[in-house]
């Protein structure tokens, strides 16, 4: 058995894990992006806040019970609810007054919100990293020389389940259909009696829930965190969502996996891992140069 192919398989496992997290986060980003046509640069900081909420609820619950899954479920419910509330408040204060304003204005407003959130957390909690309580035991399995941990399996399973459920919800449910109608044409949808305002709130709630689930999975994979790391997540989610094709849920998932693939495989092709970012972004630029409307997006033929 060649070590190279083994290494490749091992990296593929990592890719699937990382890609599932990225995909989920990109879907969360893309919900708001697709429906409210809003590049939400406060998404990363919201994700960061939800990580802290998970941390608090998790620690709180761990004090009461030993069973890991109960801790996780209750922490998730609590954190999702509060994160969704936060997202809606942000939407009402900082984005709603800007309907009809240039797109960039909303981006800048969201940058402002993100900045305020990040430094609020920083001033109250401080810059020191915290460690997420252990939700998942660290059992390991080896199949054909490739290592799996229980964590990996759970991460992938939960992420895929969340994405599938969300996709079904958008495709099949009444609210989902209304959401898609607003995404297609807000004005026309409002003539059909759909409240665009309410649908945008729904999009923010769904986005917040995805961010929270993403945060819990991220916490399982990489337990330490600090107030700064929301920024990274922000750019990753944005990149993955755009890469897939603006406003497309499937595209966002695909973008997440592609981003993960580029991140995971590029060190294998290089002498040192420090050139990873160069290769990763080089590939991204290349992909966008040949597919200027993202992986799934259709090239728009402008009517003249």
């Amino acid at each position: 058995m060649g070590t190279y192919s083994q290494q490749f398989l091992q990296q593929t496992v990592n890719l699937v894990q990382l890609g599932s997290i990225y995909g989920l986060l990109a879907v969360g980003f893309s919900m708001v992006y697709g429906i409210a046509r809003l590049v939400n640069f406060a998404y990363g900081p919201i994700f960061m806040v939800s990580t802290y909420l998970l941390f608090f609820f998790g620690t709180l619950m761990s004090a009461m019970t030993e069973t890991a899954w109960i801790v996780l479920v209750f922490a998730l419910i609590g954190a999702s609810a509060l994160t969704a509330l936060l997202a809606i408040i942000i939407e009402k204060i900082a984005y709603k007054p800007l309907r009809g304003a240039p797109k960039v204005s909303v981006v800048v407003s969201s940058v402002g919100v993100g900045m305020a959130l990040e430094y609020l957390v920083l001033s109250f909690i401080g810059p020191n990293p915290h460690r997420m309580p252990t939700f998942v035991g660290n059992s390991r399995y080896t199949v054909g020389g490739v290592n799996f941990s229980l964590a990996t399996i759970i991460i992938v399973a939960v992420a895929v389940a969340a994405m599938v459920v969300l996709n079904l919800y958008i495709k099949k449910s009444r609210t989902g259909i209304a959401l898609r109608a607003v995404a297609e044409d807000g004005l026309a949808a409002s003539f059909m009696g759909i409240s665009a305002n309410w649908m945008i709130s729904v999009a923010f709630i769904l986005s917040a829930i995805m961010a929270t689930i993403g945060a819990s999975l991220y916490g399982v994979a990489y337990p330490t965190f600090n107030p700064y790391f929301g920024e990274q997540i922000n750019w990753w989610s944005f990149t993955a969502a755009v890469l897939g094709g603006i406003g497309s849920v499937k595209g966002a998932i695909l973008g997440g996996y592609l981003l993960a693939a580029v991140n995971v495989y590029s060190p294998m092709l290089l002498p040192t891992s420090s050139w990873r970012d160069v290769v990763a972004f080089g590939v991204l630029i290349f992909v966008l140069m040949i597919k200027p409307a993202g992986l799934i997006g259709k090239k728009r033929i402008e009517k003249v």
Binding site: A101, S105, M115, A116, Y119
Partner: peptide, 22 residues
């Protein structure tokens, strides 16, 4: 005032965008 300037800065951004989107 340390980190508070970023919090103030963020809020200023939001307010300016609401009243002067450009």
């Amino acid at each position: 005032i340390g980190t508070w300037r970023w919090i103030i800065g963020g809020c200023i951004l939001v307010v300016i965008m609401i009243f002067q989107p450009n």
